[in-house]
Design a protein around this nucleic acid. Structure first.
Length: 544
RNA sequence: GCGGGUGUAGCUCAAUGGUAGAGCCACAGCCUUCCAAGCUGGAGACGAGGGUUCGAUUCCCUUCACCCGCUCCA
């Protein structure tokens, strides 16, 4: 499948538009059009329905270690800045970085120091990652090397400054990078993979800096105690949340796959440390199956466990659910969802403060004075099990899905071309979206076969019956074959056509998108028939 | 971020230093009794900004967006 075809279809039929298009667009931002909003909402609602609403906490689901509860939250995009400092995002996402074109290394801009030095008529800034005495020695050594001088000639070096920060240097063209042999290999400093910064309150200023969340998860962690105190849930239980997140990606690319504003569907599942491995395996499988059931059943979908060295700083086990998007090179997959075993990292971080790995332990990160680098909330986020009289910090399994990525994958998988005979029996090309009926933006279209003989009146009546229940579409323009094709193109699974026979016996034709099968149903049975067809499609999911 | 390419109507493609054409789609109407192509009519575009010029869609510069590759990211 050619990606351009799908992108063109998405624009032509109102699934996706580039954001701010009339002003030339904005890289990394996308708008969902009239059909796109329906599709994405269906994805979101299918997720919530299947994970939260339909979950029965009284029974043990197949493959689960025990019964469990599910509940939800909707937390804010902007949170207390300390949240991001303790979670680790601040340090990881907010620094100015410089890259070295020669050594391919990347440095934190404010951690590079150096000295101005002149020799042989040239004045340069020799940079180093070292500080203090080591910094001075390193800089001297590298300056001698640069000017091709021996140690005994070091008086030829005329030092123009003490060790100062790289941030004081205006012209990076005269800087010798910490691992470089030639001048000017450092890029301009740039904020790297940063969180979007904003200011809370009418008056700006560094005291009011806040960030747009780069993930929805932290809103769940910081509300862990609130949920416990207000809902009587008991461990094991999960908290679900759907919402926008923001990352200032360096290279947004591949349609909506890597966007700077995107939507996540996340669950934080809290369990006893002793059962966490079993729960991790459960969620990994459960979430994979969800995509399969909604139509990503092909070999383009896979579940891949991360290698140990690939794991994030907090994770003790992660699996990605990946899809071979058509814009990726053959054999490559893109992440739809990550299922991570996060241990007690998050709750502990928000109790104690930012943690760092030390061997296979996480310990409080401390500054030079031995104080916590970022102080936690100091609140007790432990869980007391009143049955076992045990108190512990729950472990967390995090299935974190991308709503936009899932939507895109469903679109890619659904895009199909086949050949259908035209009115003279000749094969003609057909483009259609084989979307799962639950996801299809429009569930059914209603047509009069021709716009006369009282057919429109009956069709409008049927339309009126369906409209309160489903997203339906009415069309009486042009040839009926053309109307079918238009619905095929946006993935409408069923069409209802009023014809001559309707006027005689009250039956209408139902037509199936994928098989082109037609059958007759009484016009007053349309609501029931479509309901049943949709229910059957949904049940097919659950039974698998 | 770097290098290369591309920007003309919703789509596909023309032409031009001097009023920008067509096909398809979409729209209105006609015709049409089950799978897009019939007839009629109207509508619709030079990505943005600046420069050169009497005059720029065309030449130059800048910028924005998209595509490809590298880099980066998770």
């Amino acid at each position: 499948m050619r990606m351009e075809r799908l992108v063109a279809l998405c624009k032509r039929r109102g699934f996706l538009f580039q954001s701010s298009e009339i002003y030339g667009g904005l890289n990394g931002f996308w708008d969902y059009g009239p059909l796109g909003v329906l599709l994405k909402r269906n994805v979101r609602e299918a997720w919530w329905q299947d994970m939260v609403t339909a979950h029965n906490e009284l029974e043990v689901p197949p493959g689960a270690p025990s019964a469990y509860e599910m509940t939800g939250l909707d937390t804010t995009i902007i949170m207390h800045p300390q949240v991001w400092k303790c979670s680790g995002h601040y340090d990881m996402f907010c620094d100015y970085m410089v890259d070295c074109r020669e050594s391919r290394r990347r440095y934190r801009y404010d951690q590079i120091q150096g000295r101005w030095v002149e020799a042989k008529g040239e004045e340069i800034f020799v940079a180093t990652e070292q500080s203090g005495q080591e910094g001075y020695e390193e800089v001297e050594h590298r300056a001698l090397k640069y000017f091709h001088l021996r140690s005994k000639d070091k008086e030829e070096l005329e030092w123009k400054s003490p060790l100062v920060s790289l941030t004081s240097v205006k012209d990076l063209g005269r800087v010798l990078g910490p691992d470089a042999k030639s001048l000017g290999t450092l890029t301009e400093p740039r904020e790297f993979n940063l969180m979007f910064k904003t200011y809370v309150g009418a008056l700006g200023g560094e005291d009011s800096v806040a960030y747009l969340r780069p993930e929805t998860a932290q809103g769940i962690f910081v509300n862990f105690k609130n949920v416990l105190d207000s809902t009587r849930v008991k461990i094991p239980f999960g908290i679900a949340q759907v919402g926008k997140s923001f990352r200032n990606e360096i290279t947004p690319r591949n349609f909506t796959f890597r966007s700077r504003e995107f939507e996540q569907m996340e669950i934080e599942f809290f369990c006893h440390p002793g059962t966490s491995e079993a729960w991790y395996r459960y969620w990994r499988q459960r979430r994979f199956q969800w995509y399969v059931d909604l139509g990503l059943a092909s070999d383009r979908l896979r579940l891949r466990d991360h290698d140990p060295e690939e794991l994030s700083h907090y994770s003790c086990g992660t699996a990605d659910i990946e899809y071979a998007f058509p814009f990726l090179p053959e054999g490559e997959f893109g992440e739809l969802e990550g299922v991570a075993h996060r241990g007690d990292f998050d709750l502990r971080s928000h109790m104690e403060g930012k943690l760092v790995r030390q061997g296979d332990q996480f310990v409080l990160e401390r500054d030079a004075d031995g104080q916590p680098r970022y102080r936690g909330s100091g609140k007790d986020l432990t869980y007391f099990d009143s049955d076992t009289k045990q108190r512990y910090i729950p472990h967390v399994i995090e299935p974190s899905a991308g709503a936009d990525r899932a939507t895109l994958a469903f679109l890619c998988e659904a895009y199909s071309e086949d050949e259908v005979p035209d009115e003279k029996g000749r094969p003609t090309k057909r483009v259609f979206l084989r979307l799962h009926p639950r996801l299809a933006p429009i569930k059914a279209a209603v047509f009069p076969l021709v716009k006369k003989d009282g057919m429109p009146e009956v069709a409008r009546e049927i339309y009126g019956q369906l409209k309160p229940h489903f997203e339906v579409f009415y069309d009486e323009k042009g040839a009926v074959g053309r109307r079918y094709r238009r619905q095929d193109e946006v993935g409408t699974p069923f069409c209802i056509t009023v014809d001559g026979q309707t006027l005689e016996d009250g039956t209408v034709t139902l037509r199936d998108r994928d098989s082109l099968r037609q059958w007759r149903v009484h016009k007053d049975q349309c609501v029931e028939e479509i309901s049943q067809l949709l229910r059957a499609a949904q049940l097919a999911c659950v039974e698998k």
